[in-house]
Each structure stands twice: as C-alpha cells, then as structure tokens.
C-alpha cells in the first residue's frame, strides 16, 4: 500500500474502509515458506482452517497451494498437516535457500 502523507491521513489511526488488509501485503515478513507436497495431501483443509491469515488457496474443496502475498511463514499449517501415512503434505523451507 502506498504511504500516505499527513494531508491524506485522518485524525486518528482508524480504518474507515473495511477489508483494507487486502492492500497490505505481509508476505515480505516471511523468513521461511510452506511448500505444498501434493502427493501427500488428503485435502482435509486443516491448513486452510488453521491459517491465521487467508493464505491457503482452496477451490472446489481442494487445497490449491499458498498465497505468498499474505503468508507470513508462521508454519502453523505445516504443524497441523496430518499428511498421508505419516508423510506431511506441507514442508517449511527457508526463504534464503529458495
């Protein structure tokens, strides 16, 4: 989001236009990212349910990967992922190694 000057900002730090978190891309905070291993995914959607942001893409009841514009890399999805036969469907990778 573009930084605003004192003439554009309101008196108090109040958000008066709902849904503006879409324009604040928090993906740059991430030091490691979740990577989807589709072969182990059972589409339980635990990752989507537990994600504190809305960084898990889902379409037609299927897990479709991550939205890296907003994913802060907290790793909750990888922790909660039950995977298939003990093999996780989400792995965390350090950003600098990608």
């Amino acid at each position: 989001m573009k930084s605003r000057g004192i003439k554009e900002l309101g008196a108090g730090p109040v958000i008066t236009f709902p849904g503006n978190s879409l324009s604040v891309k928090t993906g740059s905070w991430r030091s490691s990212r979740p990577v989807s291993l589709k072969e182990n995914c059972i589409d339980c959607l635990f990752c989507w349910l537990y994600c504190p942001d809305m960084a898990v893409n889902v379409a037609g009841g299927k897990m479709q990967g991550f939205n890296y514009d907003y994913c802060k890399g907290c790793g909750i999805c990888a922790l909660e992922c039950p995977g298939k036969k003990g093999r996780k469907a989400i792995a965390m990778q350090e950003e600098e190694k990608i």
Binding site: S3, G5, L9, P13, V14, I15, P18
Partner: peptide, 14 residues
C-alpha cells in the same frame, strides 16, 4: 470501522 491497527515505520511518524 476498525480501531487499533498496526501502524509501522511508514506512517506512525505522520
């Protein structure tokens, strides 16, 4: 409206 948002280095000063 929402009160209490995080305002970082780019706007707090303003």
């Amino acid at each position: 409206v929402s009160y209490g948002p995080l305002i970082l280095t780019d706007q707090y000063h303003e």
